[in-house]
Write a protein that binds this DNA or RNA. Structure first.
Length: 577
RNA sequence: CGGGGUGUAGCGCAGAUUGGUAGCGUGCUUGGUUCGGGACCAAGAGGCCCCGGGUUCAAAUCCCGGCACUCCGACCA
């Protein structure tokens, strides 16, 4: 490819919309362009890298026994109504109507479509197991698109769906996808960690996220260096410390003026924060009947803990968007709670959720549901009971590992892939069944497996760049090498560059020859920004057959003969492609 | 959805308080001098100043109402 013919424009300045390196560099390199918020177009170089990632994914999926299909992005509402998700999915779903007022959506994911296709065709155990996948555009009307390709409203996703007759077979399918994902992200040159994850609105029982490690990642990962525990913060379970076998002291009400926060009341009464109970007041609406009465929820956790909203909504059986912090004034008149002084004693007409830790911890301090008053020596069972007792707290860095007890660490990651066991979540409501050897019908067990292809591209840049630009891994580089011709008017230089170009192309490398009529500095800056792994510079020494060989990731700019440089490039390409 | 910020040439920005029909840098075009890490000189092209309404002799500028983009939070398979 001749640089002079390439549809490309690089930017010297940082576009004002971009904040993080991958977004800035992909824009500056002219690889992507924004159309509207959260919607991007891919220019030739960006498109090439995207296709490289897709091809890696495709090869590994095929190798794992999955078959590629391509479904429509446009989906009829009926299928979503059948699975029960038309209402459950919420405002993130991009909904639209046709001219006859029939409802559709642009698919945010494709469980319903695949289930529908498979149920039309599968009826026997002989047709299982089955794994189908596609690489296709997804639509999610994100509340807040940001970070360029990392959280966009239109994006490319590889989604695979497995269909098995029993748990053992599903386990095999899940493992095959898990292993394939490791190969995909290894080949993309990503540093990542596979962690246990919450299965969220997709539902199901078992899930792992693949997180590319990055400080700009939106996912918080909790992991243990002492054992193999690794999970998203929202998923990480909490091993309660055993409660001290203390004697239950008599309940006592204390005058605690103005102590509306845990810090204030702990200091006023001379207690540690872990000796108090924190109240969190929430309200929820019924997603299937938005006109129904608001449901109030009071959650109680130890004063030094943080609430884990994901665990809470799972315990309540509600979608996350249906739950929000309560209007305390309205809630007070109905339930008796008092802002800053709410405790479990004296509450009524609301769902009380207590963290497990409170059950075996004695003599705590809690609000008295009366302004400027707290109780001390509050004990679960004797003084109050909860409607739900479960783990609703957030595991944070330094807390004990739920597996081995060592203090856990935290890191941030970009979620580039996720694997789920769905079980019968879709096959039962949508009647996807098979007949076994004895003519007995059973629901099919499903799994689903996603890779954010565009997001993976951003994650690769996020992990592979310096101040001058992108540093592509060979496997996803838009071109493997650039031949920079210092003076394209010099026939000796052009001829030598042309011969190197021909040798590299014959060896399978994709090569840009930069013969633009620009000053050398411009070409060097662009080569660094665009991040081609190998650069061969043809300059004055071309008269002696000498060129320069340099790797984008670092190292010396080395003089060698044109043949030596071509050999070195071919060798590196074959080692890393 | 709550709170902030910003919309002026492809990109980055000034001009606005004090109304008088627009400027800088970069990029682009042409000519010349240059030529190994984003050259220099000269001449050019390029703008419904986000949209709609209002005030005024006159609005990029003041007022009202929208919209878009963006940051923080909420939310997010």
């Amino acid at each position: 490819m001749k640089a002079s013919k390439m549809f490309l424009s690089t930017l010297r300045e940082v576009p004002s919309e971009a904040e993080i390196p991958s977004h800035i560099l992909l824009l500056r390199a002219g690889m992507i362009k924004k159309l509207v918020s959260g919607v991007y177009a891919f220019m030739p170089l960006g498109n090439r890298s995207l296709r490289k990632i897709e091809e890696i994914v495709r090869r590994e999926m095929d190798a794992a026994g999955a078959q590629e299909v391509l479904m429509s992005a446009l989906q009829p509402a009926e299928l979503w109504q059948e699975s029960g998700r038309w209402y459950a999915y919420g405002p993130e779903m991009w909904r639209l109507k046709d001219r006859n007022d029939r409802e559709f959506c642009l698919g945010p994911t494709h469980e319903e479509i695949f289930t529908d296709v498979v149920r039309q065709q599968v009826s026997s155990y002989r047709q299982l197991p089955l794994n189908l996948y596609q690489i296709q555009t997804k639509y999610r009307d994100e509340a807040r698109p940001r970070f360029g390709l990392i959280r966009s409203r239109e994006f490319i996703m590889k989604d695979a769906y497995s269909f098995d007759r029993d748990e053992a077979s599903l386990d095999d399918s899940y493992k095959a996808m898990y292993d394939a994902y490791e190969k995909v992200f290894d080949r993309c040159g990503l540093k990542y960690r596979a962690v246990e994850a919450d299965s969220g609105a997709i539902g199901g029982s078992n899930s792992h996220e693949f997180c590319a490690l990055s400080d700009v990642g939106e996912e918080e990962i909790i992991y243990c260096e002492h054992c193999s525990m690794a999970a998203t913060a929202e998923r990480a379970s909490f091993a309660d410390e055993p409660g001290a076998a203390a004697e239950e002291l008599p309940l006592e009400k204390k005058y605690t003026p103005g102590t509306k926060t845990i810090e204030a009341v702990a200091e006023f009464l001379g207690l540690e924060q872990k000796q108090t109970i924190k109240a969190l007041l929430l309200q929820a609406f019924d997603p299937e009947d938005p006109d129904a009465k608001i449901r109030y929820i009071a959650c109680f956790i130890r004063g030094d803990r943080q609430l884990n909203m994901t665990k809470l909504v799972n315990a309540l059986g509600l979608p996350e968007y249906a739950v929000q912090f309560a209007d305390e004034a309205a809630m007070g008149s109905e339930t008796g709670c008092v802002g800053g002084f709410t405790g479990p004693i004296g509450l009524h007409d609301c769902t009380i959720v207590a963290d497990t830790e409170l059950v075996n911890t004695k003599n705590l301090c809690a609000g008295a549901c009366e302004a400027d008053h707290h109780y001390i020596n509050v004990n679960y069972g004797r003084d109050y009971k909860a409607d739900i007792v479960t783990d609703i707290k957030l595991l944070q860095a330094g807390d004990p590992c739920p597996v081995c007890g060592a203090p856990v660490k935290s890191a941030r990651g970009i979620e580039v892939g996720q694997v789920f066991k769905l079980g019968t979540k879709y096959s039962v409501p949508m009647h996807l069944c098979y007949k076994d050897e004895n003519q007995q019908e059973h629901p099919v067990l499903m799994g689903c497996y996603g890779i954010g292809v565009t997001r993976t591209l951003a994650a690769v840049v996020e992990q592979n760049h310096d101040d001058n630009g992108i540093i592509w891994p060979m496997s996803v580089a838009p071109y493997h090498a650039v031949i920079t011709v210092i003076n394209p008017k010099d026939e000796v230089q052009m001829s030598l560059a042309g011969s190197i170009f021909a040798r590299l192309e014959a060896a399978g490398l994709e090569v840009v020859i930069d013969e633009r009529d620009e000053r050398p500095g411009v070409k060097f800056k662009d080569a660094d920004l665009l991040g081609f792994p190998i650069r061969i510079t043809v300059g004055k020494k071309a008269a002696d057959g000498i060129v320069e060989y340099k790797l984008r990731r670092g190292g010396d700019n080395t003089d060698m003969t044109a043949d030596q440089a071509a050999d070195a490039a071919i060798e590196l390409y074959n080692a890393e492609k």
